[in-house]
Design a binder for these strands. Sequence first.
DNA 1: TTGAAAGCGCTAACAC
DNA 2: GTGTTAGCGCTTTCAA
Lengths: 336, 336
Amino acid sequence: MTIYDISEKAGVSIATVSRVLNGSSSVSEKTKKKVLDVINRYEYTPNAFARGLGLNTMKTIGIICADSSDLYLAKAIYYIEQKLRANDYDSILCCTGYDLDAKAAAVNLLITKKVDGIILVGSNFIYEEDADNQYVVDAAAQVPLMLLNAALDAPNIYSIISDDFTSMYEATLQMISAGVRDIVYFYNSVSYSGKKKLAGYRAAMEEQKLSAESGLLQFYQGSHEDIPAMTRHLMKLHDQGLNFHGVIASDDTLALAAVKYAKLMGYSIPQDFSILGYNNSMLVNCCDPELTSIDNKLETLCQHLITTLMGVLDGNEMPKKTVFSGEIIHRGTTRN
Amino acid sequence: MTIYDISEKAGVSIATVSRVLNGSSSVSEKTKKKVLDVINRYEYTPNAFARGLGLNTMKTIGIICADSSDLYLAKAIYYIEQKLRANDYDSILCCTGYDLDAKAAAVNLLITKKVDGIILVGSNFIYEEDADNQYVVDAAAQVPLMLLNAALDAPNIYSIISDDFTSMYEATLQMISAGVRDIVYFYNSVSYSGKKKLAGYRAAMEEQKLSAESGLLQFYQGSHEDIPAMTRHLMKLHDQGLNFHGVIASDDTLALAAVKYAKLMGYSIPQDFSILGYNNSMLVNCCDPELTSIDNKLETLCQHLITTLMGVLDGNEMPKKTVFSGEIIHRGTTRN
DNA sequence: TTGAAAGCGCTAACAC
DNA sequence: GTGTTAGCGCTTTCAA
């Protein structure tokens, strides 16, 4: 069933059918009804490719994330996808893993598919070396590019971020002023936001004249879901003679491992041992006591990202970088 | 930059360019190289719409799930998306929520977008009433339709499922034979697989001449992430005078709530209280002791789903229904 | 208000 | 081995 069939059955030209389809220029009520009747009777829907060919857009946004099964990224995708649909856009999802080449390939793939914009979900798409970010800059030459939780200053790139530095800085200060001194910073990512968080921790420690070195910085390398492995990591620290009574984690999962560690050690939380998580995910309720964690307002970030993208697509001038504040949600793993 | 530009610059016809692009019929090495050089020099990529118009396919599969932030569904999406890409297909993702109309709308949207196939991820797409499944049957008239964790017998519909009935049946039997009698079945879904699980529990209870009634069947209605609310649900049961020393949950999240409940009650696990989860998700490591859970081999299911879909797309005869067995992974919340 | 016709960029059947 | 050409289904001037 094509526009020709409809036009024939309705006794009008294809141009007229196209007009009622798009509500573009004016068509008499009478012909309009006639055409609509035929369209409905035959349940005709226009061919998206043909339309795309002419308009050169398919109202589709590409979403790229490293791992859609990551709790945080999954949530972000959920929000983004919903809000996109609310704006009459569809989304193509690509999960790339954490390899740079795969990321670049995904970006190119989406551009080939003629998406109207690309959203990079998660801070791991922006690297330290400028050269490694070239694929993002290049892509932005073709379509607007949105960064969630990362920032890069280049034409046609829009960054929406949470102020991870400040969140971590303040959370660390709070833990210190609650009397905890030997605080391990436990992290698993050196992405854009990963670095901001780390910097926040360091700034607070240094301001309080505490060393942020001597093994307190602990980078965990391994599956992002393997809590036992994370716990072992901390256990090994202890075995090596490191004495610590607080853990600030870059992620709730790591924090959960710290809870397990503390229990294994027989510490009581938060009296002997304090723990702070990040993301305020569903995991905060999974342990006992429940986890203090930083809420970085993911839904707000996503909402804003889509609003900005829609603005850009409409040809409006939009802010290149938007920063929201996080919030520390106090629960049972920290004193205050 | 179009195929015409390339053909001109390379001094050949557009047909030749098309041929080297698709590697269809033979082109002499020399012309091939000539064309490739031009293509690379100008970084030309063919227009996907135009190609789609001609071929009437864009090598894209639609994925529909209710909620991509659900731990289990997110993982499924991850596997599916990866395996799809490995087969040179992209995916359009739609998250519909749990409303029937929204699901039907998503299906239609994808068909309009000319996807080559649709994957319904999760058992909540198939309803008890035949009438409610009509949207699936209708869609299958247009494109092959894959069901993950649900089954429906109709033309062009392919179901890939885990044998939830047997898994639950055996797990329940094990718990009973370990001496637990008053076992609450704690569930939050009456979807296709939800019903199978429940039936497995009931069958085992009845076979052991135990009542599966009198409040032992507990349906939790509320956020799928709100563990405290789930815990309160169990607490209320206790307050109402129900005495129970085991929980079989349809989901790890619910099981986690049961762990919290048992601790609140001062029971020691698994001596006084046994708990079984489902999905073997990352949550099994989040509690202490770790959760015994049923692994339903999600990656295998997904792999098989894609293999089947690719077979169908290639025009091969493929099995309409494939059933895999789950496996009970014993950890600390059950005796045996 | 409506229709005719020229693209949009590509594939594939057919001719040479 | 290579070129010509007819679609694919739609949008959009331009005329009427």
